Structure formats: structure tokens, C-alpha cells
Simulated scan of single mutants.
Amino acid sequence: MGRWGITLPLTGVPVLQHRALVSELGELGYTDVWSAETTGTDAFTPLALAAQWSESIRLGTAITPVYTRGPALLAMSAATAAEVSGGRFVLGIGSSSPAIVNRWNAAEFTEPFKRTRDTLRFLKAALAGEKVDEQYDTFTVRGFRLERKPEQKVPIMLAALRPNMLRLAAKEADGAITNWLGAGDVAKVRSELGDAELAARIFVCPTEDADSARALGRMLISTYLTVPAYAAFHDWLGRGEALAPMHEAWAAGDRKAANKLVPDAVVDDLVVHGSVEQCRAKVAEYAANGVDTPIIALLPTGADQFDLVRALAPEA
């Protein structure tokens, strides 16, 4: 087994209560901790703490939106995370979504591909210690240089769903981060990315109550996959026809109907559920199909989440 990641913080668990778990992760076989940034914790603070609680775990943001921090602040945050982790930090950036960027952070969500590309190019220069004085297509930076450049290169990975962004990740970044894909979808994503690192957040619901797992999965899928970027992603992956009734109900404002119209087969493709052993085997299938870094996102089942993280470890 290669890399094996976990998304932290766990749902509903205060950040400081993760210390004992994080200190065990390396011994359990986990190699990575990746954060997220929606309406809970920010992307950087949990990783700064995890860096002090572990000595070997790689730490990454999946993802930090390119709109919600200015370019210079994003570079400073990444440099600080690299410093406090002793060079174990990976910066994952992406365009995020109109809800997060515009509705919650009062920023304009325009030209997401170009903004991500421009931010990537700025960060590569800034994190290398260069003085940046540049007019990009989507913003301009004048005379910025980090006070202390990172001692080691900070890898930058892009949130990528479709060919253009996957190819940009392959050409100019250090890899791609994706999510909401099935194990059988990996080959298509890999065909656009080439040999660069591919990380994938995998939603895992360790319960043998299939009805409960599917109910949770339908709720999440009808919420996420109606976002235009994810809708286009699944059109590209070949699920457009299966998801068309859900999209029609959602567009008509009938959220309950949209939820019910997500087929079980789609849920079973996109949400790993079953016994802990079955879930662990399914995550390993993603890795066997070409995901370099599977990142488990544990969905709540009512069981102790710390125990589930331990049970889902590759060496459990």
C-alpha cells in the first residue's frame, strides 16, 4: 500500500480533541492528513496543530479557494504551514464554488480556470522566493516578496474535475485533487492527468445499514452534484442521463424530489459503504485503479469516529 489519507477535523469533533488520534496515525499506516474549508474550520489551522502532534504525516489543504484570500496572503499562509511542519506541507488550491466564494465570502466568482491558473503561477514564483511584479489575466501583484521563503519546495496541487484543469495540473502543478468519483472513473481522470500525483477524497460511510448510507449519500449527492462544475464533471464521466431527473427536480425548486431521484447505483458508485472491511477494500480499489493518495472523508454513522478511523487504517 502506498499513501493513505484521512480528512480532519472529523465531523462535529472540536479541533483540539484530535491530538491523540493524530499522534497515532503514522503507526496505524496513515501517511496523510488533509483539511477542507467550507463552513467549519479553515484549511490551515488544523494542519498547523497536526504538524505539532505528528512527526511524519504529510499535511495538505483540499482545498483552499483561490478567491477567498489575496494572492500574497495565500503565499504567506502556505509558507508558514511549510515552516511549522518541517516541509511536510502540500498546498491544494482550487476555484471552489459560487456559494462559497460569492454568497459566503462576497467575492466575484469569475473565470475560475484563469483565476486558478494565475494563482498557481503567482504562488510558484512567490514560494520560490522571487519578487513578483506581474499583471496576470485576473489580478495584478506589484512588488511582493516573501520575507522568508520556504526552505524546501512547497508542492502545489490543483482541484481538478475535467480535462482542462487536469491538464493544467499535469503541466504546471505537482498533481491534482479530485472528489465525487467512483473507483471505475479513475482511469478516465488519469488519462488526462498523466503520471502526476492524483489525490482523491473518497466519502466513506462504514455501516452495514445500506438504506441509511444511501439516504445520507442521496442528500449529499443532490447538494453537491447540482453545482455546475460537478454536474459537468458527471456528464463527462457518463452519468448525465442517470442524474437528469435529479437535476430537473432541483432546477424546479423541489429539493425533496431531487434527493429521492438519485439512483441507488449512483450512490453506491460515489459513496463507499458497508462493513469496515468492505470499506477498506473499496478504498484500496481506488488506489489499485490509479489514485496515488486516497483521502478518506468519514461520514457520520453514530459510531465513535475515532474508532472508525483506526479501523479503516490500512494496517488495521
Rank of each mutant, 00 (worst) to 15 (best):
L28Q: 09
A43T: 04
L127D: 00
R121L: 13
A242C: 11
T31C: 11
Y230H: 02
R19S: 12
K282R: 15
S96W: 03
A251C: 06
F144M: 06
S96Y: 01
A170K: 11
V186F: 08
N164L: 13
V154D: 01
V141N: 12
L120I: 10
V13I: 15
W180T: 00
M219L: 13
E192L: 02
D185V: 10
G2P: 09
Q135G: 08
G290C: 11
E315W: 05
P300R: 04
S85W: 03
H247C: 01
V267K: 07
T61L: 04
R115T: 09
T41R: 07
W53C: 02
T178M: 13
P150Y: 00
E248F: 01
D32C: 11
N164F: 05
A303N: 04
W104G: 00
A36D: 02
T116V: 06
T68L: 07
V266A: 05
Y230D: 02
L243D: 01
L168E: 06
A232W: 10
E277F: 03
A107G: 06
L123Y: 04
G253N: 13
A176K: 03
R145H: 12
T68H: 04
A229R: 05
G238N: 13
L298T: 05
W4Q: 03
Y224H: 07
E285D: 14
E241Y: 03
V266L: 11
D133F: 08
L16R: 09
T110S: 10
E241P: 03
A311V: 02
T31W: 07
S23M: 05
D133W: 07
M157W: 03
L47E: 06
L73Q: 12
M246V: 15
G26R: 09
G92C: 07
L299V: 13
R255N: 08
V84H: 07
P71F: 06
F44E: 10
H273Q: 11
V154F: 01
E111C: 09
L16N: 08
L47N: 06
A287Y: 00
A288F: 10
E197K: 11
A20I: 01
T116K: 04
E277G: 04
V262N: 03
W34M: 09
P206S: 06
L193I: 09
D268V: 13
P263Y: 07
P65E: 02
V186I: 11
G12A: 08
R69D: 02
A160H: 05
L312I: 13
A215L: 13
E111K: 15
L10Y: 06
S54L: 12
S96H: 09
L270Y: 05
V132P: 08
L161R: 09
Q17M: 10
